[in-house]
Nucleic acid binder design. Structure first.
Length: 425
DNA sequence: TCTGGGGTCCTAGGACCC
DNA sequence: TCTGGGGTCCTAGGACCC
């Protein structure tokens, strides 16, 4: 007997695990990884979770654990995590008939075999990633994506399973017992809002949802939750995407380390963000047709928060940093309120399309020369890095004072020669 | 003092057309 | 004077995910 199954593999506490690979002192201690600006907690080791630290907790509120419990904090090091992710995904790809990389630390794999073979495969996947990359993973195997996510959840929460759970090898009564204990909001695709509404209908556990009436679910919610119910019952209905679908939008948005209050400073922000956005367009081989600029005041300050935002149609499909910078600055000038204290800003490029050919070239000479400047900027950045060259404030060698705070950063261990780890024996 | 960023998918409703 | 109904396309907003 041979069955098509889906495996969902994810790395435990991914960012923390990456940091630990290169700094064994972090093993066994509470560790948190912080968001940009060291603002809040985005990843926690098990020990940090045990201290009651939640995802999204403001760092300043949990900082005291550094002294009281030897907690270690790290600023996020996306170069390191991105590179480690690529290594994990490469190893995983060897085990599946197809692979869908679902997020930086998660992947679906198509697998097949008898129940025994599937269990053995899951164990081998876990061991291989651990040995060749150095990070711990959990593996869930089941007939549908939703159930694979559930199996992974079971693997993660039951230490005796050693990080793997294949539903074909499980006693159906045991599955039933677990599903009638686990809250429905722990299920992939069921968030807080849906959970509240379901609770009102007397559906509070996974088992409850599994035997709900699909027609009624479809009527009261949407096709999304209907699919979840079908998948819970073993009918696969969520498609998988082996190729990363073309991006729908590119967003560059950050909170500032200190508030921006003047038009000049905000235009500096827009100039830099628009150029970062243009670099990404070039990197992905995409042209944008819509540009959105946004800003926001603090949600936590007294008084009314304000989130000005405007979207404009670009005069032609473009990846031109000059054009984008100019339009983003002008748009921001129109929507920002003088005197307001902005803590974040962003640029979103959407309506993305592949090479538009001639359409992208203007008919006027200055547009043609802008295109050339854009090409040169792109080429220099590709060769010497994003910070090597820029327009106006985008070329500042000194970081502006609103730029990101990263007090606890680890080195780019795997992507910069100068920052390779040194081992003494 | 200090509170993330980047995405996807679906639905409803408006504009417009025939 | 009467004032349909179906289709498409676009956008805003909601919900969710990691």
């Amino acid at each position: 007997m041979s069955n098509e199954r889906i495996a969902l593999i994810d790395v435990n506490n991914f960012y923390v695990s990456c940091e630990r690979v290169f700094d064994p002192k972090l093993v066994g201690r509470p560790v948190v990884v912080l968001s940009n600006n060291d603002g809040c907690v985005v990843a926690r080791s098990q020990e940090a979770k045990d201290l009651g630290i939640t995802t999204g907790a403001p760092f300043f509120q949990v900082k005291q654990f550094m002294r009281s419990h030897g907690m270690v904090a790290r600023s996020s090091n996306y170069e390191l995590y991105g590179d480690m992710s690529a290594r994990v995904m490469e190893v995983l790809s060897r085990f599946g008939t197809w692979q869908e990389v679902y997020s930086i630390d998660e992947s679906f794999l198509g697998v097949q075999g008898t129940p025994d073979q599937l269990g053995e495969l899951a164990t081998r996947i876990r061991a291989t990633v651990g040995r060749s990359v150095g990070v711990p993973v959990c593996v869930g195997v089941a007939p549908t994506k939703t159930l694979a996510k559930f199996a992974n959840h079971v693997a993660k929460h039951n230490a005796h399973l050693n990080g793997v759970c294949s539903m074909d090898s499980m006693d159906p009564d045991l599955i039933e017992r677990i599903q009638s204990r686990v809250p429905v909001t722990d299920l992939w695709g069921v968030g807080g809002k849906t959970g509240t509404k379901l609770a009102g209908m007397g559906i509070s556990t996974i088992a409850d949802l599994k035997c709900a009436d699909v027609t009624e679910i479809r009527k009261k919610f949407s096709v999304v939750l209907q699919r979840t119910v079908l998948e819970l019952n073993g009918t696969p209905c969520i498609a998988h995407h082996e190729e990363r679908a073309d991006k729908q939008q590119i967003m560059y948005s950050r909170s500032f380390s200190s508030p921006v209050t003047t038009l000049d400073a905000m235009q500096e922000v827009m100039s830099i963000y628009a150029q970062r956005g243009a670099s990404r367009l070039m990197g992905d081989g995409l042209w944008a047709t819509l540009l959105t600029v946004t800003a926001g005041t603090s949600r936590f300050a007294s008084g009314e928060a304000s989130f000005p935002s405007v979207t404009l149609k670009l005069p032609r499909p473009t990846q031109d940093p000059i054009l984008l910078t100019r339009l983003a600055s002008a748009a921001m000038r129109d929507i920002m309120r003088p005197g307001a204290s902005y803590v974040r800003g962003g640029v979103v490029l959407s309506g993305l399309q592949p090479d538009p050919g001639q359409e992208a070239f203007g008919i006027f000479e200055d547009e043609v020369s802008e295109k050339h400047v854009g090409d040169v900027l792109g080429a220099v950045k590709a060769k010497f890095g994003d910070k090597a060259i820029g327009l106006g404030s985008g070329g500042l060698a000194v970081e502006p004072k609103w730029s990101m705070k990263r007090e606890y950063s680890s080195p780019k261990f795997t992507t910069e020669w100068a920052e390779l780890p040194v081992v003494r024996a």
